[in-house]
Design a protein around this nucleic acid. Structure first.
Lengths: 331, 331
DNA sequence: CTGAAAGCGCTTACAG
DNA sequence: CTGAAAGCGCTTACAG
């Protein structure tokens, strides 16, 4: 049988209201009464029912995370950052994905309507952005992680994509590279543009330019990286460095270059973006721009929590710094 | 303002009880009444409050997942399998980890006591197994994923570790290898023993044996794999195949062999275990034993759901088959 | 400082 | 087939 507040009240010879006050740290309780109540609580190991508290208070102390997919390489780190942060405040995390398409979104919408959580963390939902905006306008606290440059109307945590792109260029230039190729991400992603802009800008600062035919669209997959290199090689235009806009495509770039007989980094330097776990284990190990995934998750969670506790929502995105990680592929 | 069952009742000119009956598909409702109620529900977009339903029914339609850490390479797949399965049944998933040590466990215990969820999925909790057993005995439905051979008293989903180990041996023998080395996982893990047993058994079937000094303890990390190879090489005993008991350590094995001047697979074949995403992108690509992580998550979730809907708990572990994935490191 | 009572939004016997 | 009422386990004005 479940232990309820009524039992605590009875044993401590007070009303349920008083037990509730002690439980929630309300000020107006006699010290000795409070002590007596606490003693009983400890003795019988009473913990308030989350459901009942939620119903009575109208809040659940639960937050939801909506991610397109959980199998992306940096998702684990983001999640870990979120869970650690929420847990420290006693909040729970409900996890939702859009893996099954419209049906997933439908189920998620149901849980929203059922008020199953107090706030929402969301990782760039490809097709659901409009819906999320609707929820936000309806009053649901929302924080977005990695806006991919879409500049939503709600608070977000992002990284210095432009700066990261610039850092890549500067590093390659300093290493003596002069003929640059880029394997981009999906062209409509804001981060693709930002990384490319930063890269171009830093080249320009060094008086260098990027040959248009050496900028090839990728899709953030390993296969996309391989195909892109095939195109670069087929173009016949010489290049001595490749900036792959994420690590997965960089892995494909490394492989395709090897198959094309180009030695990395002697003939061609390769730099990725993200610093996912695999980056430290490629052959050669990948130089890349680290995105602080765990910190991003943690920061987003903190942002959401402070909103739930009454702080106003920040109106500017929180931008966390990227950093250059130099490994063997571009020393 | 939240739409409640009272408003639906009023608009449909029935009692809240009747709305509830329609909502829950109870049989004894007049067809035309039911239709009228449904119309109102659709019109005003009513969704029952999860909190209130939970309180009234004593169940939350929420399941918890407890994992030591979320950054392990196959955790994303397991999670995805779980979420997809739960979502299809309208269940939510609360995510907990033990990343912050005792405090994490403490917070988790609080949520358990608060009855925040109906059942628990757990991935081999290193130090919490005893506690989980207590919960199970106290009546909380629990399903364990990947028991690592610890044979808990509660239901579990695991894979054919022994068979997988045997498959590795048979494949290597068929490829003409005769001098075998093994880099194990942590010696106290059940799966380490099972994989090794299977490997030995299949060698014996072929009339071959394993040199004791060529069995080196690893720790399932890449660094552990590198260190192990250094030991193997230092032993001076010749070997033409290495069975690394997980893919992370296989990555280290590949690197250390390269640095030792051994060519894979010409001089030495290498086989891993798990088939995590990185396995398809090593140099050379890694031959390995695939563990169906997503299927394991999905199967565990289904097992838990059927228990929650009244089916008896299975008393045998559900064992999913592993499969050999042949790539370049051991063709 | 404390208690009785109403309320959070549902479900479920119990009557009819 | 349907409704009034009690109950799930809390919190929170309202009185005193």
């Amino acid at each position: 049988m479940r232990v309820t507040i009524a039992e605590v009240a009875q044993r401590a010879q007070v009303s349920k209201a008083t037990v509730s006050r002690v439980l929630n740290g309300k000020p107006d309780v006699d010290a000795s009464t409070a002590q007596r109540v606490r003693k009983v609580i400890d003795e019988i190991g009473y913990v308030p029912s989350a459901r009942a508290v939620g119903l009575a208070r109208g809040r659940t102390r639960t937050v939801a995370m909506l991610a397109p997919s959980l199998t992306w390489p940096w998702m684990g780190e983001v999640l870990q950052g979120i869970v650690d942060t929420l847990e420290a405040d006693g909040y729970g995390l409900l996890l939702y994905t859009l893996n099954r398409g419209p049906e997933s979104l439908n189920q998620f919408a149901n849980h929203v309507s059922a008020n199953a959580f107090d706030g929402l963390l969301v990782v760039e939902p490809p097709d659901a952005l409009h819906y999320i905006s609707t929820l936000y306008r309806a009053g649901l606290p929302v924080v977005m992680i990695d806006d991919r440059g879409s500049h939503p109307e709600f608070p977000s945590v992002t990284t210095t994509n432009r700066q990261g792109g610039a850092d890549v260029a500067r590093h390659l230039v300093a290493a003596g590279r002069r003929r640059f190729a880029v394997v981009t991400g999906p062209p409509h992603f804001g981060c693709t543009q930002a990384r490319l802009d930063g890269f171009r800008l830093a080249l320009a600062e060094a008086g260098l330019t990027l040959h248009p035919d050496l900028v090839v669209d990728g899709d953030f997959t390993t296969e996309g990286g391989e195909v892109a290199v095939d195109k670069l090689v087929a173009s016949g235009i010489p290049f001595d460095a490749v900036f792959a806009q994420n690590d997965l495509s960089a892995v494909g770039v490394l492989r395709a270059l090897r198959e094309a007989g180009r030695v990395v980094p002697d003939d061609v330097s390769v730099v990725g973006f993200d610093d996912v776990p695999v980056a430290g284990h490629t052959e050669p190990r990948l130089t890349t721009i680290r995105q602080p995934a765990q910190e991003m998750g943690a920061a987003a969670a903190r942002m959401l929590l402070s909103t739930l506790e009454g702080q106003p929502m920040p109106d500017h995105p929180l931008v966390l710094p990227t950093s250059l990680i130099v490994r063997e592929s571009a020393p």
